[in-house]
């Protein structure tokens, strides 16, 4: 599956294009791929109505253009690799089980919501509900990794059960809300009410934050797992500093209204640390 698609017509209403997924395009020639059905508003359209489809060479799917209004790229994908040279719309990699998506620009809301495996990397910013549960569901991400180099909106990792979400910039409010387990690393600043309702899991930030009254300070130490985790993120290209790897972290336990087995780790900026 080697295809390169370039957006030639910017949709004026939302375009739902879950066909932009390695398995759906596997074995298709460029003209065959251009015939695939997308949902354009309330009507069908062909992929070729919006994209110039060309051959690729490296076994990957390359998408070029401003895809901000193109939803569901890589939704449910299980293998292969998608590279978006530009920005991606909502539901990028929602429910994916494997493979990799790389977005050079920004991504919309619900990046990787309810995914179970694979990796999504967004070099720019992402919207709200990154790696979240959808409304009504208790469980969000069940596995896999989401890396956002820029900032994200609210509710990143809501209901997360397993996996890793790493944010190079700042997070909005309610990061890790209702988290069941898993890890969220925010190299920038946390928004408000981080970890509200979390049962288990870890939320890490490199900046001070005011936590909910149901979180209690435990100690300041250097958790080894975090070292592993930060080294891993460094290898994946996030700007993790040596001082963060070696650093000491305040451990806050919560959320006391729930199971109280979660933690928020804040890099201790105290002198001498």
């Amino acid at each position: 599956m080697s295809l390169a698609l370039t957006l030639h017509t910017v949709p004026t209403v939302p375009l739902e294009a879950e066909v932009l997924s390695p398995a759906r395009l596997a074995g298709l020639s460029a003209p065959e791929a251009a015939k695939l059905t997308v949902v354009y508003g309330n009507q069908r359209a062909d992929l070729g109505d919006f994209f110039k489809v060309g051959k690729g060479a490296d076994g990957e799917l390359h998408l070029t253009g401003d895809l901000a209004r193109v939803k569901r790229v890589g939704m449910g994908m299980a293998e292969g690799r998608i590279v978006v040279h530009g920005s991606a719309g909502m539901h990028l990699g929602t429910g994916m089980t494997g493979g990799e998506i790389v977005v050079e620009g920004d991504a919309g809301d619900w990046v990787g919501s309810e995914m179970t495996g694979g990796r999504i990397t967004v070099k720019g910013n992402a919207g709200h509900m990154v790696g979240s549960a959808t409304r009504g569901s208790a469980v969000g991400v069940r596995g896999g990794e989401i890396l956002i180099f820029g900032n994200v909106g609210n509710e990143a990792g809501s209901g997360m059960r397993r996996g890793l979400i790493a944010i190079g910039g700042d997070s909005g409010d309610f990061a890790g809300v209702n988290m069941l387990a898993g890890t969220i690393v925010v190299l920038g600043r946390l928004g408000w009410r981080t970890g509200a309702g979390m049962a288990r899991g870890s939320i890490i930030s490199m900046h001070p934050a005011e936590l909910l009254p149901t979180f209690a300070y435990a100690c300041t130490y250097s958790p080894l797992f975090l070292r592993l985790c930060l080294l891993h993120l460094g290898r994946l290209g996030l700007p993790v500093a040596r001082s963060q790897v070696e650093g000491r972290y305040q451990r806050w336990c919560g959320d006391a209204v729930e199971l109280n087995r979660g933690e928020v780790l804040l890099l201790d900026s105290a002198p001498g640390a």
């Binding site: 596995g143 397993r162 996996g163 890793l164 387990a181 898993g182 890890t183 288990r200 870890s202 797992f225 592993l228 985790c229 891993h232 087995r261 933690e263």
Partner: peptide, 8 residues
């Protein structure tokens, strides 16, 4: 009080 963690 133990906790598990997946990295990679």
């Amino acid at each position: 009080f133990q906790a598990s963690k997946v990295v990679g």
